[in-house]
Write a protein that binds this DNA or RNA. Structure first.
Lengths: 344, 344
DNA sequence: ATGAAAGCGCTAACAA
DNA sequence: TTGTTAGCGCTTTCAT
């Protein structure tokens, strides 16, 4: 069976504590003793039992990451960033997905799915402030993404309003006057609200139309939803000269529809997405997109969780802004101006 | 602090064992007693401590999934399938990525990264048979993907040779005579070997050329690698009338290059990918692709791991074939024939 | 049907 | 510097 500290101690002819000292790199161990114990460890193939260590110390070395869906490359790339950031602190990541459904998000926030974790990073879509209000779970929680919560938890995000404004400003700067928004979500909860707000503020400031006829609500946030929304706008009779989509998959779905209808991007309609996923860099028309610094978000999230594990001085909850930039490509600049560039 | 079984027992005026019986749905508990204990549990907000349970039972309820990279949507979608399959058995998934690097894969296979797991599902790229030969780790390991290993572990995959042949046969059936292969990997290890073999076998059987001039090796397996490979083939002076790519991102990268050079897909060059990722369904030219049944793969992998946990009768290692099909779209059929269809 | 007590493997307080 | 021991919270014989 599995070898325990006791077995190693017996083999090396020392006490359990001495072996434990070696395993945990305790300072006051003579080199000779360390080597002797290490030899026994190697010979027996000893590996510490983490369950026991966990039971004793109350730490697991695991943080959970709960994302809406992995199929969206933005979240997949974000997950990779979190895993790497966690690895830098010798933490491993337990991954869960919520489908963006409120009930799932509540369950996760209350620790029903994963109960062996030191901390939780949650990227909510439908979750409401009240759902978190009476959270009893005592593992640290960090929120990710664009929803606005007035709650005592760290929240990592980019400035979505400002980013959306930058995207729309870019379009206006190219002479586009009628900019549609694709991806406001149907129903009470409104994950896209900050991006819609940025879109509206910028257009209003420029004296351009920002009426509801230019906003296409959707049920989901994938390619197909973007395509359906684009179709709906065009069939409504509106003929915008630009589209700002909630995310890249929706933008790409919209572009597919434009292509099917014989409309040229960007000549007839310019398109801007959000998230800067790899896919947008290799279509027939490369996609201009808001590019959040995913590495920074992952890093900040992990650090934020771990900071709350110190125990002594727990930092006050704070809102952390990660960096972003607008990457301009063919879907707004056109092929000639965009060049091959920026496949980062 | 946290409430334990003991606290509940004291509150309910019963022994620890009785509480445990209730928590674990033990059969022989009188309804009255069950209710009385349950009330205490609710009042105190008792939640079992999993670490203690794990220590006692030797199980953690966690399986690890190690994938090359999450950025590739195929793996992201596969991860989602595994998470769901695991959830069906009340298991949660610890996610790791190896970058497809041999050293990382070895570390993972030996359990150095995650040591709190009941089982491991590993999708290797560079790992060699010998690396697993002397594996001492005693947690069950299941292999995923197209590499061929002669080892006593379960291996879940689709029949890559047959699938590749089907793809090439489809191209031949459309009259394509010179089919290039993009994505054979440089260097000793050859993750794409089965797909290259299928490509070669089918062409040879049809009396068509399958020389090395039609194979473009790459360093990685992303969009950019596919684009670079396509460029290299065209610059070599060869002008194939079809391309079969190792995976969808590479196929899409290749199509971008064809588009830049003014070559039409499929009129001038038809393209087939592998994996059927969502992205391929929404480009300007939708992508014909081999579609592995990811749900089945995830399910089989999880079941395979869990079967080895039973303890009593450990099933003999076996090779399991998951289903696949060829989804035909515009990149081979053309726009008219393909219709809008199959956006799954 | 319920209770008492041992022990899973480890860490940490204390002792030597 | 190293050894002894209690106990983390739970499950599980064995009694009753």
């Amino acid at each position: 069976m599995r070898v325990s500290l006791k077995d190693v101690a017996a083999h090396a002819g020392v006490s359990i504590k001495t072996v434990s000292n070696v395993v945990n790199n305790y300072q006051h161990v003579t080199p000779a003793m360390r080597e002797r114990v290490q030899r026994s460890i190697d010979v027996l193939g000893y590996r510490p039992n983490l369950a026991a260590r966990h039971l004793r110390k109350g730490r697991t070395g695991i943080i959970a990451l709960a994302l809406p869906e992995l199929g969206n490359p933005y979240f997949a790339e974000l997950a990779a960033a979190v895993i790497d950031a966690a690895a830098a602190h010798e933490y491993i990541v337990l991954l869960d997905h919520t489908g963006g459904h409120r009930e799932q998000e509540i369950l996760v926030s209350q620790g029903f799915r994963a109960r062996v974790i030191d901390g939780l990073i949650l990227s909510p879509i439908e979750l409401e402030t009240e759902d978190l209000r009476d959270r009893v779970e005592n593992v640290p929680l960090v929120l990710l993404g664009e929803r606005d919560y007035d709650l005592p938890y760290d929240h990592i995000a980019i400035d979505n309003v400002a980013a959306a404004r930058a995207a729309v400003r870019h379009l206006n700067g190219l002479g586009r006057r009628e900019v549609a928004f694709i991806g406001a979500r149907r129903g009470r909860s409104e994950p896209a609200q900050l991006r819609v707000r940025g879109w509206r503020e910028e257009l209003t400031a420029a004296g351009l139309p920002a009426d509801d006829g230019l906003v296409a609500a959707t049920d989901g946030w994938g390619h197909a939803d973007g395509a359906a929304a684009m179709n709906r706008i065009l069939e409504s009779g509106r003929r915008p000269d630009a589209v700002f989509a909630y995310n890249d998959p929706m933008a790409i779905g919209a572009m597919r529809v434009l292509h099917e209808r014989g409309l040229r991007v960007p000549e007839d309609i310019a398109v801007v997405g959000f998230d800067d996923v790899v896919e947008g860099r290799f279509g027939a028309v490369t996609l201009t997109s808001v590019s959040p610094d995913k590495g920074a978000i992952g890093r900040l999230a992990v650090e934020s969780v771990l900071a709350r594990l110190g125990g002594n001085e727990v930092p006050a909850p704070r809102r952390v802004w990660a960096d972003y930039r607008l990457v301009e490509r063919e879907s707004t600049l056109g092929r000639a101006a965009a060049g091959g560039g920026d496949r980062g």
